[in-house]
Every structure is written in C-alpha cells, then in structure tokens.
Amino acid sequence: MDTAKLELAAQRYREAEAALDAARTDLQAEAVAVLANTEERGAQATVGRITGWSREYLRRLLKAAAEEGGGA
C-alpha cells in the first residue's frame, strides 16, 4: 500500500485549511476595524457587499469584538 500521495494530500489540505482560517480571521478584523472607525452612512452595506456577509453576521461580529475588547 502506497500512502505517500495520501499523506501529501492530507498535509496540503491541513495547510490550506490553516491558511483559510488565518484569512478569515484577518478579514473579520478588517471588517470590524472599518465598521468601528467610521460613521459613514452605508458603511455596513459596503462591508457586506465586499465580504458577502449579511448585516446580521456583521452585527454579531461587532458585538463579539466589543465583548472581547472589554466593551470598547
């Protein structure tokens, strides 16, 4: 049984999953930063359009960030 290709594919998958998680974390942080630092009308809609995230998801993201930041 040759498992070398399976091991390689599994490693590539783990690396891709880690990269995706890191990219998601970065995107969430950037979205929160934009929304927390602007009072511009339509900012939430713009962030939603760019990210593909719903307004409800963005509200939950902001709430979680505020809770992590000690209510900031």
Score class of each variant (00 low, 15 high):
L6S: 14
Q11T: 14
E67H: 05
A10M: 14
L20K: 09
A66L: 14
A36D: 10
D21H: 10
Y57D: 00
R60T: 05
N37Y: 09
T3K: 00
R55T: 14
K5M: 03
R55Q: 07
R49S: 08
G71H: 07
L8A: 13
Q11V: 07
A33M: 08
T3M: 06
A72W: 06
A45W: 02
R41F: 03
V34R: 07
A19C: 04
S54P: 01
R49H: 09
A18M: 08
E68T: 13
Y13H: 06
E30Q: 13
E40H: 11
T25N: 06
Q11D: 13
G48P: 01
R12P: 00
A10Q: 06
K5Y: 04
E7N: 12
A64L: 05
R59A: 02
E56V: 10
A43C: 02
E7W: 03
E15S: 04
N37F: 06
A65R: 15
K63E: 11
E30C: 06
Q44I: 08
E68M: 15
T51C: 09
L62N: 01
A43I: 02
G52Q: 08
V32G: 00
E15I: 02
R59L: 09
V32C: 01
V34H: 02
T3D: 04
T46F: 12
E68C: 03
A45E: 05
R12Q: 08
A16W: 02
I50T: 09
G70T: 13
L35T: 01
Q11N: 12
A4T: 15
R14C: 05
D2S: 13
R14V: 05
K63L: 08
R59G: 00
